[in-house]
Design a protein around this nucleic acid. Sequence first.
RNA 1: GGGAGUAUGGCGGAACUGGUAGACGCGCCGGAUUCAAAAUCCGGUCACUUCGGUGGUGUGGGUUCGAUUCCCUCUACUCCUACCA
Length: 838
Amino acid sequence: MSQRYNHKIAEKKWQKEWVDKDIFSSKKNKNKKKYYVLEMFPYPSGKIHMGHVRNYTLGDVVARYKKMRGFNVMHPMGWDAFGLPAENAAMVEKKSPEEWTYKNIDTMKGQLKSMGFSFDWKKELATCHPEYYKHEQEFFIEMYKNGLAYKKESEVNWDPIDKTVLANEQVIDGRGWRSGALVEKKFLSQWFLKTSKYSEELLKDLDSLYEWPEKVKVMQKNWIGKSVGAEIRFEINTDGLKENKITVYTTRPDTIYGATFIAISPQHPLCKILSKKEKKIQNFLDDCKKSNPDKEKLGFNTNIKVNHPLTKKQLPVYIANFVLMDYGLGAIFGCPAHDQRDLDFANKFNLDVITVVKDKKNFKEITNEAFTGEGTIVNSDFLNGLDIESAKIKIVEYLEEKGLGNQKTNYKLRDWGVSRQRYWGCPIPILYREDGAVLPVQKKDLPIMLPKNESKNRYFESLKDLKNWKTTVCPETGMVAVRETDTFDTFFESSWYFLRFCNPRLDKALDFDDIKYWLPVDQYIGGIEHAILHLLYSRFFTKALRDLNYIKLDEPFKGLFTQGMVTHKTFKNSKNEWIEPNDVFSKNDKLFDLNGNVVSSGSIEKMSKSKKNVIDPTQIIDVYGADTARWFMLSDSPPERDLEWTETGVASSYKFINKIWELSEQLNEYKPSGGLEKNSYMDDFDKIINEVSSNIESFHFNKSVAKVYEYVNLLSTLVSKKQIEKNELGSVIKKLSIIIHPFIPHISEEIWLNVGGDGLCAMANWPETKTSFEKKSFKMPIQINGKTRSLIEVSIEEEKEGIIKRAMADPKIKKYIENKKVVKTIYVKNKIVSLVTK
RNA sequence: GGGAGUAUGGCGGAACUGGUAGACGCGCCGGAUUCAAAAUCCGGUCACUUCGGUGGUGUGGGUUCGAUUCCCUCUACUCCUACCA
């Protein structure tokens, strides 16, 4: 009898075989068409989780499939190795972040290898390695020299207990995540990259990304936030101020005649001047700092008046806590009739409301609800009678002519603040000389090495405290200089790793020719959570490096796929504590935890430690094998949707693996019954293979899986009825091992070997199949009034008239048309006959 | 407040440009095998039915010979984003 498939032995064996034969190393070959598959590289947090398994399984399907289709595939893997968790872990475990990180990399690499992914490990890189980050130090210097990097004062979240800057996501309900201290806003001088210089190009080029999900493009578009409006100048009518005008930004210049007040941001330069004069204003500005505009709209009448540029009426100037300084000009005109927030504000401070847009048909007096719809301009002098769009054009022309304003395009996209006051990151290569000069480090002095943290007892959080490290001399003048102690945001590293993969050991940063061959990434796969930041920064970086002459490339990622999360049922006991699935037992249809508390099963949520609904991939691989885990990941759920991890699902995948093994084992002793129908089924296998292929190409792996099941079902029916000849059976099983290879490569190799395949299945070509099939006859549906009432066998050559005649004569159909009049006959060739009766 | 998406059996999900709704898998039911169970194999499985049929893809409507598919309405849920002037 056949032996049960032993995944533990087989999977190890093939993994070793692939390494020994070195089949996944990618080499540039200009005679072959390249295909670059990339999954978002992981942060080495300790162990891989199911999210990784899903991500890399999807990528592996593409990589292996494209290889079998004859492409020169590059499928690299590396480590996004800088970041805060290493610092936190270092404090707890009393290890240096470096030691902790490299240990994790080692563990996770082992886990990834046990999944059988076709990574080119020769291209592995870790971003915390000086050989990697020295190049980004060079990029930064080039950016600085070319005006793409600059320093300015900016607001940060400051934790007064931990004495550190926190990222936005480390602030929970206004408190530091570790210390629990109320977070303060603090101004620090920080480094920025000029992403805003590329706003228009980043927006425009989204149109060229045909293979990106529409929703990601929409998110980026909204983030860039282009708006076309106008800047309008209001003359100040109050003496004794240095300023003589306030300029506002608006996207509704057509409502200028409805303006009844001006509001400026608490950070507006004018406020600084005013606050020095009046204590009350200073107090109000302090209140604003503490306030939350979400909950409470604050306003303060400055008693300054400005002239309306057209009517010359005097308008009051307010300071308002909801006006943002870093969008537009930090000043707005209020038009209460046509903006809800302005109306609320006007009602609160008893300001005028002037209707200037009217919907003639459904006009309502404005009281508590602003009118923001389409309409006709009224009360607006020469704009009266125009629609909104024409009024916008006309008023801007007029303002420009009179020197009162101008058209202006604005973007929400801001410059990227890359400074982090942390230890475990890439040092920013800048020197501050004692005479005040700010100097980029000279390239020959790179890398600026991150100092080792040797102390086991006290772990440092920032480079600021390291006097010896940060004190140096200016190489040109010999003057004393201090190093920049900020490190880069870790998005800096991930913004170019996909370029470095082409040649990760190269002395210089990038090889022009290699990038030209391998890039853009043909298929990038990762989580939707990176829809904006990582993907936008990478796009920016690509364009910036292009303009600095490192590469010739506009967009880094040709195809993008964003996969869904892995979820699992949650459990809670009667004490309202989360319980791990492994610790739940069923007894008399009720669930209990280890301590005998009643457990209820809760909602299905993303796997997370806090909810204790995590399934460890290592355990699954151990018990069921990597192929089972991969097959389950790909079955049922479409890759872009969430996937619910279920025990029954895993078990059925395991069953399938064993089933195809048993099936392939039958070949040796197989004897057909003779007198077989020749070849009628071979077309069916080809049809199924075609669908497996097209579903892989379109990322519908769950449908490919369904088709593989059909293939196996057909095969096992033929085998059990002994209706297939032995040669053909061999060939069909051989093809099976190929088409399952991208999904479950280990057992595929095992079956391939069993049926006498040459070399490795991983190196085999995807089967050649027929693409057009002679259909001699088929069952054509006959409908009465749109409902299918019968099927008749129709030969492919049969003429329309004959088919209709036979359809009407069909006994089932006859019943429906007796005593009725057929008023219409619809015939669609090779598809359907539809009769309309009365 | 703004934007995007989703809705199909007990469950996950199929259905190409409108043309036999429910592929495939899970679960469930019945049977075989077994001393028994597990495993495995075979059959059935949208609902109702007087066994002729009838109804059925979140709701209500429309276009059409024919709608899961196209258009409008409403509802529910999910995600993103947020004072962006």
